[in-house]
């Protein structure tokens, strides 16, 4: 009994849907014919009603520009206190070293960890070096050797302008560079 009731309800629903679709179709067709008739009878007055006045304005485009991604990485905002909560420090204004380490385009230090040979060989890479690269290498060695208590093994690439230090000393080298003002 209950099953047959459900089927009846379903059938009713289907019929209602079908009739609605049919009705819409019918309405559309009528509307189309109707407009054709209108166009034939009184074309000029009907056309004028279709057009609405438009106003062109470019002032609001600044709100669109806010949503568009910038073409270049913007300058970092001025903070009241450094280091910022994320630990970022801006480069210092004046330098007294014969070398320089440029920031990346994202305003970070170009110090990276390279992991090789299945994770057994770790190297600290310092890129974007200007000036006397050998002086920087000596300073890094003199800074790291007392901290680690080990001999600091480095590789200096004069053409590609980078230094590699054996071992994971990314935080130590980063601190050293920030203290130097880079």
């Amino acid at each position: 009994m209950a099953a047959s009731m459900i089927s009846v309800v379903c059938r009713c629903g289907r019929n209602i849907l079908r009739s609605q679709i049919k009705g819409k179709k019918y309405c559309d067709e009528r509307a189309w014919h109707g407009s054709a008739v209108l166009r034939a009878t009184d074309e000029s007055t009907h056309r004028e009603e279709e057009y609405v006045d438009i106003e062109f304005s470019t002032d609001e485009f600044k709100y669109v520009e806010k949503l568009l991604p910038s073409k270049t990485v913007p300058e970092p905002p001025k903070h009241t206190l450094y280091p910022t909560p994320s630990g970022w420090v801006p480069p210092a204004a004046n330098l007294s070293t014969p070398y320089a380490v440029n920031r990346t385009k994202n305003h970070n230090l170009p110090v990276y960890l390279q992991v090789k040979v299945g994770g057994t060989r770790k190297l600290t890479l310092i890129r974007k070096i200007d000036g006397d690269i050998w002086a920087l290498e000596a300073d890094i060695r003199n800074f790291l050797e007392p901290i680690t208590g080990k001999k600091c093994l480095t590789q200096v690439h004069e053409v590609a302008r980078f230094i590699r230090v054996r071992g994971n000393y990314v935080t130590e080298v980063g601190k050293f560079l920030i203290d130097k003002g880079f």
């Binding site: 991604p69 073409k71 270049t72 385009k105």
Partner: peptide, 8 residues
């Protein structure tokens, strides 16, 4: 100086 995600 372009950002990494440069596609709008």
């Amino acid at each position: 100086h372009k950002p990494e995600n440069d596609v709008a």
